[in-house]
């Protein structure tokens, strides 16, 4: 297991061709959207609009980084994301008067991280089903967060921090810089470190991974811990930029993140995928949504396209895998 490549050496030419098609589809899709978008709306290819696209990507993007690990490690999905986003946002704002902004934000991330630790222990070490476990912990965590702030909408009172986060540093929005840093860190962790190789090994063949003395339980648990922590962090950022948080603030983020990862071609069956792919999927989904908004399609109805896109992306992935696979 010294190679970081996920392609087994027995790859045939046909497999390589399929991989090429799978790898090309995403950039072509993004390029196509850029062309279609600029044809449909004059405002699309402006710096202001594209900056907005990237800012919109950033909050979900931080969660996508974690979810990618969950997918590759064959952890199915983390459904506790909305709760972690919620507890991050609620605590970061709710504790501001008592602890000050920075400390409150830190507590928000730590609380999500602690809940993620429970997720990790239950899924990694106790081998519980990830879907039902994250569903249960998510329900509990959100309940606790609401109880902690009294179940109401919380308002922040730190316009300076808000201005800093929504402002720019060397010409780039600060929130985008934070996202890029997290994404780069996640990419390096996945592609350049021993832990990253453990993640691929655990996801592609658990039996072989166990035989190679890879700490399966730790790897799987860590993926869920990371996702919860990043979701909490994302929630804190969301709360601080809006300076207001309601308990349901994170609703839908789990599905947004899953959509991005799936559209990026990261397989739910584990062992395959990369950070650039997942983030490419996110970019594609965000661009598509932006084009629809610019052309007057309401957000609620965009699911008609998004739902079809998810099904098509996964069906293509399954088809390519089956054709290229040994079966």
């Amino acid at each position: 297991m010294t190679s970081t490549s996920t392609v087994p050496p027995r790859a045939t030419d046909e497999k390589r061709a399929n991989k090429l098609l799978g790898g090309v589809a995403l950039p072509v899709g993004i390029l196509g959207l850029l062309i279609v978008g600029s044809l449909l709306s004059e405002q699309f290819l402006t710096t202001r609009n594209l900056t907005n696209v990237v800012i919109n990507m950033s909050i979900v993007g931080i969660i996508v980084v974690g979810m990618t690990f969950v997918f590759i490690v064959r952890g199915l999905a983390d459904l506790s994301v909305p709760a972690m986003v919620g507890i991050g946002a609620l605590l970061a704002l709710g504790l501001q008067p008592a602890l000050g902004s920075v400390l409150a934000a830190l507590v928000g991330v730590l609380a999500a991280s602690l809940a993620g630790l429970i997720n990790g222990l239950l899924i990694g070490y106790a081998r519980l089903n990830p879907v039902i476990t994250t569903l249960a912990t998510g329900t509990i965590v959100l309940g606790v967060a609401q109880a902690a702030v009294g179940g109401v909408i919380v308002y922040g009172n730190d316009p300076e921090l808000q201005a800093f986060l929504t402002g720019r540093l060397i010409g780039v929005p600060v929130i985008v810089l934070i996202f890029l840093a997290v994404a780069l860190g996640g990419h390096l962790l996945l592609s350049r470190t021993t832990f990253g190789r453990w993640v691929y090994a655990t996801g592609s063949n658990p039996e072989a991974a166990r035989a190679s003395a890879i700490p399966l339980q730790f790897t799987k648990g860590a993926a869920f811990w990371m996702t919860a922590t990043l979701s909490g962090f994302s929630g804190v950022l969301l709360g601080l930029t809006l300076q207001t948080a309601r308990p349901g603030v994170g609703a839908g983020y789990e599905f947004d993140a899953i959509t991005a990862v799936v559209v990026g071609g990261v397989s739910l069956l584990g062992g395959f995928g990369s950070m650039p792919r997942a983030l490419g999927g996110l970019l594609l989904v965000t661009l598509l949504s932006n084009i629809m908004v610019l052309n007057g399609i309401p957000t609620e109805s965009q699911g008609l396209v998004m739902g079809s896109l998810i099904a098509a992306a996964v069906a293509l992935d399954v088809y390519l895998r089956r054709r290229g696979g040994a079966s």
């Binding site: 998004m306 079809s308 998810i310």
Partner: peptide, 12 residues
């Protein structure tokens, strides 16, 4: 994923 897609689609 399949029912996630149909969930999003049908809700929309």
């Amino acid at each position: 994923v399949a029912t996630l897609a149909s969930m999003i689609f049908l809700r929309a």
